[in-house]
Design a protein around this nucleic acid. Structure first.
Lengths: 350, 350
DNA sequence: CTGTTAGCGCATTCAT
DNA sequence: ATGAATGCGCTAACAG
């Protein structure tokens, strides 16, 4: 029924081995023979059987990408960048050498993260890239580390993109400097004169959440500002959480002059809540986000935030995963964010 | 080195076939035997070899998803929804029955679309879902149709999500009513009193672009408004294109009272350009988008647009691809958008 | 309900 | 530079 390599061999009057060799291009084959084989491939409209070659070669051309939420541009941008770098090096010509991206949406759920890792191991993925913050839970961290080690020992390259290093693992880590960015952002607001700042943190037990919050608090402390009890609220990384958290913060302390959000989506929700409460930005309350996603510059006023080079990081992770770029020394690189001061932050009222 | 099914069989003192059966769960096995096997699996930390089982069973658990740009939430939302539906039915228990999503970023390039389809065919994907508008090019359309037919004949289910049907194919199509949505949107503006409307269209040779534009023009025509020469500009589906196109439209006709954008990102760029030109929205110029992406409601003023049920469509496409939902009668379903009238549209000045 | 037997389609040794 | 032979790890008849 389906045409196989043997059929091609027969048509080209060569052995199956030869066909395999021209298709993989990693072995000397006479030019005329190659021609003949390629012609047969075309005529028969032959397509290699991926599973079969993966089985025989014990490697596949799949690359796993774990994300919390592919609908969130934060992850979409990284995933897209990874994808663009794992494509074929263009060596062979035809649809060869191409690597496919298996995107796994964990939804931030520890179990699903583990499940997907197992599934990728099952597929004998060539590489696995874990993006975004890690879940902070002892047992889970141990389980993940064990899985990664197992993957590595099976020859799968593991790269962390926007996630801190994992102990006892050869995984290359490209970590964002969330702490530094968070600190710089809050320092900016304090420099403007703000002394009463609310903070809308991400979900608990996440490295990203913790690091950004730590940076924020470090800035407060350095300025001698004592954080009041109700100034921090936790919630998901989405606009709705930002909206509700802002109303809550306002309820707790109507005298706040600034709201710092865990990321840009949350900040957008915060802006909406402030507007709906009759407060002007930044005249009454300043707002800041994190990430600098594409839509942030179009907010009104445009959002003060910390730009993370998501596309660059994703691309680099992809290249490292493909062995096309040298890993950073020590296997760890810290990627800094850049403070983007825009219209949503200003001097406090009064 | 690596533990195989045979090892598990030996440890559990059963035949390899039995192990295979409990792992796949699609065959009666005595409870006590199953227990024993499962224990052995755990003890050995065994993970099935995906390529091997795919080869033997001649099906894989990969589902391909073609998108133009995964960094764009329009596609991210659909991809995420698909993903959530192709997961395991929870029958077996462990990490079984799970299907993995292979996300392929075509960037709107015809060649890459074809290449990815071939790659997916090579992987013997269980299903392929093509999202978003199709490229309008005779030769390419024929090539795609041929590829889809080939995929289908190999047992791959093909579903189109947000894309019009493909001739001579069994592909199920969930098409968005872009024409109807575009028409309704422009009718809304005309109803408000607008008579001079600029239109920022998407890239040429795309079904989505054409249909939305056709809807717009149909509304103009029905209202007896003759479209002037410079009222339409084409460009990519991003904010920057919207920004530049708006400046261009303003240059051509400073008396425009409304700008209709091909999608929300473009609309955001349009808003920025209008503001930068000292024009107020909607007092001086009304703006409308399309899609109703999450950030659109947070634009200031919030964006009048046409909401497309992207998540629902993606989820449905996923279920149909998995055979868990009956395809629509005739293999085609037209999904309507919903006009969302918000702050960015108002009665024209003067 | 369980074991035995054959391949699935290809990449690789080894020869030549 | 090419061919012949072997096995990758698993599933699917077929028996029993």
């Amino acid at each position: 029924m389906t045409v196989t390599l043997a059929d091609v061999a027969a048509r080209a009057q060569v052995s199956p081995a030869t066909v395999s060799r021209v298709l993989n291009g990693n072995y000397p084959v006479a030019a005329t023979t190659r021609e003949r084989v390629l012609r047969a491939v075309d005529e028969l409209d032959y397509v290699l059987n991926g599973p079969a070659s993966a089985l025989a070669a014990s490697t596949s051309d799949l690359v796993g990408i774990l994300v919390n939420d592919i609908a969130d541009p934060f992850f979409g941008i990284m995933a897209g960048a990874v994808q663009s770098e794992i494509g074929g090096s263009g060596s062979g010509g035809r649809a060869g050498g191409e690597r496919l991206a298996v995107v796994c949406n964990t939804g931030g759920d520890p179990e699903r993260e583990l499940t997907y890792l197992t599934l990728l191991q099952r597929q004998r993925a060539a590489a696995v890239i874990l993006t975004g913050g890690a879940i902070e839970n002892e047992a889970h961290a141990i389980a993940v580390a064990a899985k990664l080690r197992r993957l590595e020992s099976a020859g799968t390259r593991v790269v962390l993109c926007g996630r801190p290093p994992v102990q006892d693992t050869k995984a290359i880590a490209l970590a964002f400097d969330n702490r530094g960015g968070g600190r710089e952002l809050t320092e900016h607001l304090i420099g403007l004169g703000h002394r009463r700042l609310g903070y809308i943190a991400g979900p608990e037990e996440r490295t990203t959440t913790r690091h950004r919050l730590e940076g924020h608090r470090a800035a407060l402390e350095a300025a001698g500002i004592e954080e009041l009890g109700g100034w921090t609220v936790h919630g998901p990384y989405d606009r709705r959480a930002g909206y509700e958290a802002t109303l809550e913060l306002l309820r707790r302390d109507p005298s706040l002059t600034a709201v710092v959000a865990a990321n840009d989506s949350v900040a957008l929700g915060a802006c909406a809540a402030l507007r709906d409460s009759g407060l002007r930005i930044p005249d009454d309350v300043s707002v800041a986000g994190f990430d600098d996603l594409p839509f942030s510059i179009d907010a009104v006023p445009s959002l003060t935030t910390v730009r993370l080079p998501l596309a660059e990081a994703g691309a680099r992770a992809g290249r490292i995963a493909m062995g096309r770029e040298e890993p950073p020394p020590g296997g760890i690189a810290v990627i800094r964010g850049e403070l983007m001061v825009r219209g949503s932050s200003g001097v406090p009222r009064g």
